[in-house]
Design a protein around this nucleic acid. Structure first.
Lengths: 80, 80
DNA sequence: GACAATTTGTCCGTATGTATT
DNA sequence: CAATACATACGGACAAATTGT
């Protein structure tokens, strides 16, 4: 039996962002902190790690990004 | 009118893998070529780029990876 | 228009760890 | 132990888009 794997940083960032969205702290349309600020917030040494989390959340449609502007929470109806 | 954006490499890799799965070329359970071989196949200079595509496809559940073994096409449950 | 600052977007290279054979 | 291959993290280099001066 393998021991419980630790969540990698990027997955924990994904989970945290999802929770902030779900809790309403970051409502639809909210602009997330900059990649640099998020790297600081999550205490990861590189923006690349944050980027990976954001790229996945953009891919799944939960966030969307605009170059030069920021990354935002997708505006979607809470149909679920 | 902005010109048509070029797809970044990782998105084209995602699209290609999805198409191979959809076409049946890579059926459920099929083992994908190694990351290194895929980097060669798609002519990207680094395995990191391939990895990003694969990570996203794993995150979306279309692929799954086993360390030391390979990356495989997800076996869809025929529940629907 | 030009320029700089900020921020997102992509790609590359490397290092290290983990799992299988 | 060694070879192979996946998994994660980091850091740097540019490009592209926006905003402000």
């Amino acid at each position: 039996m393998p021991a419980q794997r630790f969540e990698p940083h990027y997955r924990r960032i994904i989970a945290d962002i999802r929770q902030r969205i779900a809790s309403g702290e970051w409502p639809p349309g909210h602009k997330l902190p900059s990649t640099k600020a998020l790297a600081d917030l999550y205490e990861v040494g590189s923006q690349s790690t944050v980027r990976q989390a954001i790229t996945i959340l953009i891919e799944t449609g939960e966030l969307y990004g605009h170059q030069g502007l920021g990354v935002f929470v997708t505006d979607r109806s809470p149909t679920t």
